[in-house]
């Protein structure tokens, strides 16, 4: 900073010396000029700092809002992904799963961009090929339920895994119960979800 002012002062001297035929008494550049510049600089700096603080606050607020939204999205995603289970060789929705599906329907209605894939699964006690049909029927059942709640059917796609992808390969009643299920996956519009009213 200091060095710059000295150079500047020297420059003024040279300019004056080479200037005109009418020599003026040479006086050194007053220090007061520099002081104004510094004040101006400080003013600018303080504006910038305020600007930065405001941006930072804004960024933090946005971040917090995003985090809150992400939290909501995560919660809603988990609710959509929550599986439902079926009785042996049955594809009708059990009463205890209706609230679960009602919630999924509400979330889909509040988020029009969401598309869903429902995958039906079976335990391995049934026939291999029949289980593909059974899984399909289980996926269809959940889709029909959601459509009856007002979700546009074209937003839901169904597939069946039959007994090809068990959650638990054990040959126990507990494992079979787990494996008879519908899985729900959002295939589009799931990056940010809003909670239904």
């Amino acid at each position: 900073m200091r060095r710059k002012f000295i150079v500047l002062a020297a420059g003024v001297l040279v300019a004056a010396a080479c200037g005109g035929s009418q020599p003026e008494p040479v006086t050194p550049a007053p220090v007061a000029i520099d002081s104004t510049a510094i004040k101006e600089q400080m003013r600018q700096d303080s504006i910038a700092a305020a600007e930065r603080a405001r941006a930072e606050a804004e960024r933090r607020a946005t971040e917090a809002a995003l985090a809150a939204a992400a939290l909501i999205t995560n919660q809603l995603t988990a609710e959509v992904h929550d599986m439902i289970n079926f009785d042996f060789d049955r594809s009708d929705i059990r009463m205890e799963d209706e609230a679960n599906l009602d919630r999924k329907a509400a979330i889909m209605m509040a988020n029009a961009a969401v598309r869903m894939r429902i995958a039906g699964h079976a335990d391995d006690r049934g026939s291999d090929e029949y289980n593909l049909a059974l899984g399909n029927r289980r996926a269809e059942s959940a889709k029909r339920y959601l459509v009856n709640q007002g979700v546009d059917g074209s937003r839901i796609n169904i597939v069946s895994f039959g007994e090809e992808r068990p959650l638990d390969p054990a040959q126990t009643e507990e494992a079979w119960t787990k494996n008879r299920r519908d899985e729900f996956e959002m295939t589009a519009g799931a990056s940010q979800l809003v909670a239904p009213n």
Partner: peptide, 25 residues
């Protein structure tokens, strides 16, 4: 869709098969 459990006709020309998807199996 999901297509499976198929069988050839005895002359080998026709394939009968199972299809699952929207609208059932």
């Amino acid at each position: 869709g999901l297509n499976y459990a198929s069988a050839f006709s005895p002359d080998g020309r026709i394939l009968a098969y199972t299809r699952s998807g929207e609208g059932g199996t």
